[in-house]
Design a protein around this nucleic acid. Structure first.
Length: 112
DNA sequence: GACATGACGGCAG
DNA sequence: CCTGCCGCCATGT
């Protein structure tokens, strides 16, 4: 367990930063890791601010089915997919292929 | 201060 | 199996 900041958002930033290159995670996984799996919505909201703010690799966060729903918030919608593919993640039609293979769950990887 | 909205997810119908 | 609605929490108007 990391130091859970009083702010839901800060925790989101921390977790996303820990996502290894070439891996992706989901909003729900992060929300669950933070203790409120029903707050997945907040995670996406936080990431929107995150990419505007710090060095958070927001492109590594997709929804539960591996769909790059957040790409529309990037300056260039293709940027998110390109970044992922550049890291070795296979993306097709805005969706991560073999999602189960690239999925990085903080609840499992950051087990402490 | 209250209402509406938003990069989602789970459950009910 | 597919579609729709509710929940969650913070931010903007």
């Amino acid at each position: 367990m990391q130091k859970l900041s009083p702010n839901f958002f800060d925790d989101v930033f921390e977790v996303v930063r820990l996502v290894p290159k070439g891996r992706v995670t989901t909003y729900g996984a992060i929300a669950h890791y933070l203790g409120s799996k029903k707050s997945s919505r907040m995670v996406g909201y936080a990431l929107n601010l995150a990419m505007h703010n710090t060095d958070v690799p927001a492109h590594r966060v997709v929804n539960r089915i591996g769909l790059l729903t957040g790409r529309i918030h990037f300056a260039n919608p293709n940027l998110m997919q390109e970044l992922l593919e550049d890291e070795g993640v296979i993306v097709l039609e805005n969706q991560v292929q073999e999602f189960d293979k690239f999925f990085w769950d903080p609840n499992i990887e950051l087990v402490c």
